[in-house]
């Protein structure tokens, strides 16, 4: 077991980053996790750059060092630059991000901080900017990123920092 990791990993490594992690100890849920990841990154109506903004806003809020360090290649190819990523902080409302991108981050903050108190003005802006399909897809993406980042934190073994690493979505 890696230093500080609270659960072991599968006895027989496969070379797959998720199957070889502690999540591989529960093979009954693994296919559903991988299928969901694939659907989020390849079929979401908002596209990978918006999904990556949701993922990184969540990662910074949960303070998952692993999640914060990753950049998915599919999102960079969709136009998400490091200049934009640098604005996904608490000052995003006054940043140079587009109004649509700011609404994406406000949606993330609603889920992460006050899901029980939806500001009617924000709800109106979200419904005006996004289709119901886009809202559903952002919700599913965000809740998945949130669960997986909290999973990584809960399992322990988190380093204090990591450099930015470009990766492909695990399949």
């Amino acid at each position: 077991m890696a230093d500080g990791l609270r659960a072991g990993t599968p006895e027989h490594p496969t070379g797959h980053v998720i199957r070889d992690s502690s999540l591989g100890l529960v093979p009954e849920t693994l296919p559903a996790i991988l299928d969901l990841q694939g659907a989020i990154w390849h079929h979401a109506s908002v596209g990978p750059a918006i999904m990556e903004m949701l993922r990184l806003r969540n990662a910074r809020t949960v303070n998952c060092v692993f999640c914060k360090s990753v950049r998915y290649d599919i999102a960079r190819a969709d136009g998400l630059t490091e200049e934009k990523v640098s604005q996904i902080d608490d000052g995003y409302a006054t940043s140079r991000l587009s109004e649509r991108e700011k609404l994406v981050l406000a949606f993330a903050d609603l889920y992460l901080h006050t899901p029980d108190r939806v500001d009617p003005a924000l709800a109106e802006k979200l419904r005006h900017e996004f289709t119901t399909e886009e809202i559903a897809h952002m919700a599913i993406g965000l809740t998945t990123f949130h669960a997986l980042s909290r999973c990584a934190v809960s399992l322990g073994g988190m380093p204090e920092s990591l450099p930015v690493m470009e990766q492909s979505v695990p399949v």
Binding site: L110, Y111, P115, A123, I135, A139, T143, H146, A147
Partner: peptide, 22 residues
């Protein structure tokens, strides 16, 4: 840990999506 993440997430979505989805 996996279940807590999924359950917590569905509770959050249940709280907020009533105001956002038809």
């Amino acid at each position: 840990i996996e279940a807590l993440g999924v359950i917590d997430g569905r509770i959050r979505l249940a709280l907020m999506l009533g105001a956002l989805l038809p």
